[in-house]
Simulated assay, not measured.
Amino acid sequence: MNELIDIFQEMDKILFLLHKIIHKEYVNLLESKVNIKKLFSLIEKKNYLLNKLAYKKKIQLSLEKSYNIYAPYLKFDKLNYFSNRIRKKCIVLNKMNLKNKDLMQHKFYINQKFLNFCKSYKNHTIYNSNGNLED
């Protein structure tokens, strides 16, 4: 049973780290100049932590099966406390991640629209017989 509590505590720590990384990602996206390298490193860290969380979830499910204990853990106060805490953190992180996705799509959509405009402008430029640009 203590192993299951330890897994919940580790999952709680991973979610805390995810919260910090998602917040850093949000701050980076709010800046006028987005640092792409920093953004990619944050996304890689987030991906690593999500994989780690998925691994811990598999361990949790196998321990629940071996102990024959399943959610909502009403008979076990510590397990119930941690499962509720993890559930609430996951909901908050999901909302934060959706904000980041919207912000990222908006920011890069505007960038793409600008690049498409520049490309179409360059395609419509005409050279005269002297080799000079005409508008």
Rank of each mutant, 00 (worst) to 15 (best):
N2M: 11
E3V: 01
E3Q: 15
L4S: 06
I5Y: 13
D6A: 12
I7W: 12
Q9T: 00
E10Y: 06
E10K: 10
I14S: 08
I14R: 05
I14K: 06
L15H: 13
L15I: 01
L15K: 12
F16C: 06
L17V: 01
L18R: 07
H19N: 14
I21H: 06
I22A: 11
H23A: 08
H23I: 05
H23T: 05
K24F: 05
E25R: 07
E25H: 06
Y26I: 00
V27F: 12
V27M: 13
V27L: 15
N28E: 14
L29W: 08
L29M: 15
E31A: 14
N35C: 03
N35T: 00
I36M: 10
K37F: 04
K38Q: 10
K38F: 07
L39D: 03
S41D: 04
L42F: 14
L42E: 08
K46Y: 06
N47F: 08
Y48V: 01
Y48M: 08
L49M: 13
L49P: 04
L50D: 12
N51F: 14
K52A: 10
K52S: 11
Y55D: 09
K56E: 11
K57F: 10
K58Y: 07
K58S: 11
K58G: 09
I59Y: 06
L61H: 07
L61T: 01
L63D: 01
E64I: 00
E64C: 13
E64D: 02
E64T: 00
Y67K: 15
Y67H: 14
Y67W: 13
N68D: 14
N68W: 04
N68C: 08
I69W: 12
I69F: 10
I69N: 09
A71T: 03
A71K: 12
P72S: 05
Y73A: 02
L74D: 03
K75T: 00
D77G: 01
D77C: 03
D77V: 03
K78L: 12
L79E: 05
N80T: 00
Y81P: 02
Y81S: 09
F82N: 03
F82E: 05
N84W: 07
N84T: 01
N84C: 06
N84E: 12
R85Q: 11
R85V: 00
R85H: 11
I86K: 06
R87F: 11
C90V: 02
C90Q: 10
I91N: 07
I91Y: 11
N94M: 07
N94E: 11
K95M: 05
K95H: 07
L98H: 05
L98G: 00
L98S: 03
K99Q: 11
K99M: 10
D102I: 08
D102Y: 14
L103R: 12
L103V: 01
M104F: 15
Q105T: 02
H106Q: 13
H106V: 01
K107R: 15
F108Q: 09
F108D: 09
Y109D: 13
N111L: 15
N111M: 13
K113N: 10
K113Y: 12
N116C: 04
N116E: 14
F117A: 04
F117I: 02
C118A: 14
S120V: 01
S120E: 14
K122I: 06
H124V: 00
T125D: 00
T125V: 05
T125C: 03
Y127I: 03
Y127R: 07
N128R: 08
N128M: 08
S129R: 11
N130A: 13
N130E: 15
G131W: 09
N132S: 13
L133R: 09
L133S: 04
E134N: 08
E134C: 07
